[in-house]
């Protein structure tokens, strides 16, 4: 079966004051129909910019090269108008902060019915009826009253349900969820994750889930992509990644997390911090923080290569034949 989304060697750069800052360096990934792929990494690793590149929401001062194919369409060669017929219709997005991503001046009902009217051509009455149905599906009580409420009248969890209702309104084939539960309390996060699982099961939606929370990844994803400083450093099936993480960064990330189920004496922190865009190391970008760093790591950046079935890693440790 053909992939739902295939990204090949994507490079996204911001042009600022005549200077080019490359934020995404050669990202390649694919999402199969019905699959949930997680993209994890810390702030500044480029996970959100990847999702914004797919949706082409980055504005004018941006240069994108490579290829982003959605089913059989090359998104990077579409005009703005053509992109508008896909965005919110076949590809939908849930953002992190439901307070800033909903329009405070429009009622909930108006915001959900907008894509219904635009993409599906429903009449005002039909759109209203469908909006109420959608709100009920995402578990919002008193849906027929809520449609005339404004975002500030709802709690964070309710607003995120509204975002999901809006994203699912046109039955998208691909859902991009960018930190969908990060702003929420843990009991509300549990509600929203259950809801996303239900939606996925009922509609067979492919999901690209962007998060920094490895707990959420373990629970939701089939496959995981780990990003560091604008590049993919590891890609694996979810069980493989947690059982046998290969890249020193992935290992460090897993070890630095405090656990809710066992007591630990001390956490294994990764020393240092993520390099600035303008000060990227010449070799492997993780080399300055890596505990297993070798000479070659400081000189040449390794390629992302297969290291096991369904697992790829960008690290010299697994490329001994090249090192010698």
């Amino acid at each position: 079966m053909a992939a739902m989304l295939t990204i090949d060697d994507l490079r996204t750069s911001f042009i600022q004051a005549g200077k080019k800052l490359t934020v995404i360096e050669g990202v390649s990934l694919s999402v199969e129909p019905g699959e949930t792929v997680g993209v994890v990494g810390e702030s500044g690793c480029g996970k959100s910019v990847t999702s914004m590149s797919i949706m082409q929401l980055l504005g004018r001062n941006v240069e994108m090269t490579g290829s982003i194919r959605f089913q059989d369409k090359e998104l990077l060669s579409l005009t703005d108008k053509q992109m508008q017929t896909i965005r919110g219709n076949q590809i939908a997005m849930i953002f992190q902060e439901p307070m800033t991503s909903l329009n405070p001046l429009h009622s909930i009902g108006k915001q959900i019915s907008e894509p219904l009217r635009r993409h599906l051509g429903l009449s005002k009455q039909e759109a209203k009826r469908r909006t109420i149905e959608l709100l009920k599906e995402v578990g919002i009580p008193r849906a027929d009253e809520i449609i005339s409420d404004y975002p500030h009248q709802l709690s964070g969890g309710m607003r995120q349900r509204v975002m999901i209702a809006m994203a699912m309104s046109c039955a998208p084939k691909l859902l991009i969820a960018d930190e969908p539960t990060t702003a929420l309390d843990v009991t509300i996060q549990a509600q929203i994750l259950e809801l996303m699982k239900k939606v996925r099961q009922e509609q067979g939606t492919s999901i690209l889930l962007i998060t920094h929370d490895l707990g959420v990844v373990a629970e939701m994803c089939h496959r995981v992509i780990v990003m560091y400083a604008g590049q993919i450093v590891e890609e694996a099936d979810v069980k493989q990644l947690f059982d046998e993480p290969k890249h020193p960064y992935t290992r460090g990330l897993l070890k630095s997390m405090p656990s809710v189920s066992v007591n630990q004496e001390r956490l294994d922190a990764i020393p240092g911090s993520v390099p600035l865009l303008s000060e990227m190391p010449a070799g492997c970008r993780f080399a300055p923080r890596c505990s297993q760093v070798m000479d070659i790591c400081r000189e040449k950046n390794p390629e992302l290569t297969p290291v096991a079935d369904n697992q790829k890693c960008r690290c010299w440790l697994y490329r001994e034949e090249d090192v010698q």
């Binding site: 549990a190 994750l193 929370d213 629970e219």
Partner: peptide, 25 residues
């Protein structure tokens, strides 16, 4: 109990028995 069960555990082999709290605070 609900609070602790709601924390996603970074172990894909586990299926957590979760107590979902209804409604908001």
């Amino acid at each position: 109990q609900a609070l602790l069960s709601a924390v996603p555990v970074p172990n894909p082999h586990l299926t957590t028995q979760r107590i979902i709290l209804e409604g908001d605070l």
